[in-house]
């Protein structure tokens, strides 16, 4: 009898737990769907060709977000140009060369500490260094450099994890043919890691695209007045889309601030979703191409 009861109880607990875990997983989908739906509902009516391309307005209603969208991409690309070489090189060093020791521990410790610094603190650091100390004022370059520091550790981690997916037998096979370490990394390890590496970089690009706090005090909250909407000036103010969203809601004077905010939020969300989905598709395509079908 006792064992029959026990079996029934174990079965019940098992079923209940399966349900609980399933519900937890489901809640993530529901949350995202609700979130996207709500922003879509509020933002969709605002979207128009004019809204997506026109410059913002300071006082009158009817401003657009054209330069902001451009600046978001511009700062993203600048940041990636600075971050990717340093982060991949650092990640390669840590994963392929570093032997346990004081230097390796120090690099790991610094990267982890850097990763935990809140982005607003990084923004204030950027304000101190690029805006005040170097007298650049609010600039696209200052913003991009601040984001570089902010994202270096994460990208380095991504590189390390991508390299970890390469079986050590590939390295051994190459070294056993008389290849040097660098030849092995360059010709075998990196090509084998390219899929997870690309996926990781695109995911981080999505994060950079949406970053706000670190840019408010470094790239500024307005676009260069009187210049073309598509301004490549490294030393010009460069308000991004996410900063604009924050700005119109908290300090904007335009009467249609709420609508501009809703429209900006929708565009931002769609862009970040594109980055995430794009990362998966790209990773899948690269993986398929490299391993043959």
């Amino acid at each position: 009898m006792a064992t029959a009861n026990l079996a029934a109880r174990r079965r019940t607990v098992n079923n209940v737990m399966t349900g609980v875990l399933w519900a937890a997983a489901l809640s993530i989908i529901v949350l995202l769907a609700f979130f996207v739906g709500y922003i879509l509902y509020l933002g969709a009516p605002v979207i128009s060709w004019h809204f997506l391309t026109a410059p913002p307005s300071e006082l009158a209603a009817g401003g657009g977000i054209g330069p902001e969208i451009f600046n978001s991409f511009y700062i993203l690309i600048l940041t990636l140009i600075f971050t990717t070489p340093i982060a991949t090189a650092g990640g390669i060093y840590l994963q392929e060369y570093a032997r346990p020791g004081i230097f390796t521990s120090a690099v790991q410790f610094c990267a982890e500490s850097l990763a935990t610094i809140p982005s607003i603190v990084m923004g204030l650091f950027g304000l101190l260094v690029f805006v005040t100390l170097l007298h650049w004022h609010f600039t696209a370059l200052g913003g991009a450099l601040t984001l570089t520091i902010l994202n270096l550790p994460a990208l380095m981690r991504v590189t390390q994890e991508a390299l970890q997916t390469v079986p050590s037998t590939f390295r051994e096979g190459s070294m056993a043919l008389g290849a040097t370490k660098w030849q092995t990394i360059r010709r075998v390890v990196l090509p084998s890691a390219i899929a997870p590496l690309t996926t990781g970089i695109v995911l981080i690009a999505g994060r950079i695209f949406g970053e706000t706090a670190a840019l408010i005090f470094t790239a500024g909250v307005s676009v260069s007045a009187g210049r073309s909407a598509y301004d490549f000036g490294l030393f010009h103010q460069a308000e991004t889309l996410s900063v604009h969203l924050w700005y119109v809601h908290s300090e904007g004077l335009v009467p249609d601030a709420a609508q501009v905010g809703n429209g900006s939020a929708l565009v931002l969300l769609v862009m970040v979703l594109i980055f995430n989905i794009g990362a998966r598709l790209l990773g899948y395509a690269l993986h398929k191409r490299l391993t043959g079908k």
Binding site: E172, A176, L177, G178, A179, R187, V188, P191, L290, G292
Partner: peptide, 26 residues
């Protein structure tokens, strides 16, 4: 030394490249 003394491993470990590229690698 490893150029003069080659090694074949327990599990086949071809590189994820074409057949030709594997042999041409060395």
């Amino acid at each position: 030394i490893r150029h003069r003394i080659g090694m074949v491993f327990q599990r086949p470990n071809p590189f994820p490249k074409s057949i030709f590229e594997n042999v041409a690698y060395g």
